[in-house]
Simulated scan of single mutants.
Amino acid sequence: MERYLSGLAAAAARALGDDLVGCYLHGSAVLGGFDARHSDVDVLVVAAGATSAAQRASLTAGLAALPCPAVGLELSVVTRAAAAGPTAAPRFELHLTTARDDPKVVDGHARGGDPDLVLHFAVCCRAGRVVGPGPAAAAVFAPVPAALVLAQLVAELGWAVGHATGEYAVLNACRAWRFAVDGALVSKVDGGRWARDRVGAADRALIAAALARQRREAAVRLHPAAVAAFVQRIGAHLTAP
């Protein structure tokens, strides 16, 4: 992992030159729960200002040449101004993923903002790790208002039920619940551990099964109806007046 991150930082430096502010690791690699068997390597690259098409193409090519020691890389390039002024859908320069089942390269200049960046910015501000030279994450990423973080966590609940695994949906709901209670941003695994002791027997068993599947300790089946009902209850709790 360290060799990979060093190579990533070097590729960003070659592509962006003096326009590079820094590369910042976030996600499960800094919050905990990272498992190379099913986790992405999550990185935000911050540029001093708008990037050129040549810079974006150079970065994409440089990163494609690096073998990722996990499921894949999920990386976005944002400007320093975007990182310093979080909105409900921050603008971005480039987004790319290298996971085998979902590789993509998206030019942010042709798109609107990306709501997913709300949580990425929030994690970077609180726990991001600078990779290679550059200022500390807290000096680049402004604190994200709690209302924006909670709104994005709630929005992800419905997406997870329809598009993610059962364990992801359950544990994602648990970490959203944790943030709503005390403002802590934690990994899905830590969210599940926290919630497991605060629910009834049926939900406790569901969360325990989700944790076991997430850690690849067991292949217990999560019934889709039970997953959807749990996520719906958490969502109703989070949006209650």
Rank of each mutant, 00 (worst) to 15 (best):
C125W: 13
L8R: 05
G134Y: 08
G134E: 09
I207N: 10
G192W: 10
V130G: 13
V189W: 13
V30W: 02
P145F: 01
I234H: 05
A50M: 10
R129Q: 15
D197M: 10
L73S: 01
G191D: 04
R3D: 14
S6R: 14
G134L: 09
D107Q: 06
A81N: 05
L75C: 15
Y24M: 05
A136D: 14
A9I: 08
A88L: 06
A89K: 06
R175W: 05
V161C: 14
P145T: 00
V41A: 08
D35M: 02
V161D: 06
R100I: 12
C68Y: 04
G22K: 07
A138C: 11
S52L: 10
L238T: 08
Y168N: 14
L157I: 11
S52F: 04
A99L: 00
A110M: 07
A139T: 09
H26T: 02
A160P: 00
D102R: 14
V41Q: 03
D101N: 10
A201S: 13
A84I: 05
L59K: 02
V170G: 06
A61I: 00
K188E: 09
T165V: 01
H95K: 07
V106K: 11
A47R: 01
L96F: 02
E2A: 13
A29H: 08
A180C: 06
D107A: 11
V170Q: 06
G113H: 04
G33I: 07
V149I: 15
D42M: 04
D35Q: 10
A137H: 01
D19F: 01
W194H: 12
A10I: 03
G192L: 09
Y4M: 06
A184N: 03
G183T: 08
V71Y: 01
A12H: 03
Q214T: 14
A147P: 00
L238C: 07
V130C: 15
T79P: 03
V161S: 01
G33H: 03
V21G: 05
A11L: 02
E167P: 00
P224E: 10
A48E: 14
T97L: 04
A83N: 06
W194F: 13
R37K: 12
A88E: 14
A205Q: 13
R56H: 08
V71T: 15
K104W: 12
G7Y: 10
A136K: 10
T87C: 02
T98M: 04
P135N: 07
A99Q: 10
A54G: 09
F34V: 08
L206F: 07
A212N: 07
R37M: 07
A50P: 14
G22M: 07
G128L: 04
L238P: 09
G128I: 03
R91M: 07
R216S: 14
A142L: 05
V199S: 04
A225V: 13
